[in-house]
Design a protein around this nucleic acid. Sequence first.
DNA 1: TGACTACCCATGAAATACCATGATAATCCA
DNA 2: TGGATTATCATGGTATTTCATGGGTAGTCA
Lengths: 170, 170
Amino acid sequence: MESFRGTFTNKIDAKGRVSVPAKFRAALTAVSQNQVTVLPSMNGAFLEAGGPAFNAQIEDILNQLPPFSTERDQLSLMLVGNGIDLPFDGDGRMVLPKSFLEFAQIEDKVCFVGMINKFQIWAPAAYEAFRLDAFKQASKTSGVLAGAFNSMMGRGPVVPSGGRSDGEAT
Amino acid sequence: MESFRGTFTNKIDAKGRVSVPAKFRAALTAVSQNQVTVLPSMNGAFLEAGGPAFNAQIEDILNQLPPFSTERDQLSLMLVGNGIDLPFDGDGRMVLPKSFLEFAQIEDKVCFVGMINKFQIWAPAAYEAFRLDAFKQASKTSGVLAGAFNSMMGRGPVVPSGGRSDGEAT
DNA sequence: TGACTACCCATGAAATACCATGATAATCCA
DNA sequence: TGGATTATCATGGTATTTCATGGGTAGTCA
């Protein structure tokens, strides 16, 4: 099963192309064609993406509902109708639809966040806010983790100034 | 097995022809002749469509009911008797019967909505209304489902800040 | 005959495949 | 270990193909 790990920020060029991080790409091509399934999240202004394993999960969920029921159709719309299979070219770039960019408020850069079986696609600013919020929540929950979070959070910006994408905080 | 994903809005020309979205067409031709099964929905003013896998699902449903029962005959009428196999031409266009267009209140444009094993055909305005409703309802439905959904999508607010007005294919 | 159908071709725009480059990271060898 | 070499990768630009749409024309069935 494909496994996505790490955070990568890449640039969108004039034609709307973005490089899928090489590690994610490798995980995808190992199990399927050169394509990735992307859909707007139901939990916020970001995108969810993944390969066959992710799609299988979606199908499993939908199969819990009766065929031809309105309930199933509505959830199908959210998880499938609103999604899209995006192929990436020989250089590993895909083009996100404009509607997706607007949905996630993405402008010139996108943040790929690995989550094992899937990955999320964020506007860098929104992701940074999400990270900070996660930090606050985690601090409340567990003061023990604060030190670890501090050392991680203080290790530099998520968005690189230029050049190639930065890998997971090293 | 054919897999339909995404939303595409195409135009009906003066002769009543509509292009079946290329991706859907590819999924269909991969497993069958150049044709698609279409039938009026039992849940609203739209059409259901699909290929062999879709037909097989209909048969399965009917086979769960006793042969020669009134129940089965009625459902057969709805799912099979009202349906039609539509061929598409070399350019991938089909002609929807007038009765279907009236049923779905389709005028000059149609919306194709992929749902894995089938796809739906809507009048764009009606689809937009259905989509808004799905935003509101889908989270409730997904909440009722077993942990599978939450473990995949996480939990949190459902209403996204962004939105889409049309399909990603323009 | 008249509407409808099945092919045929044309076209502009959009999507996609192909090629080039610079910069960084990894590797190799002394 | 350190410097040089190679490979990887994101990114920019160009060429080619796909695709939706419009129109024409000959066959077909009532």
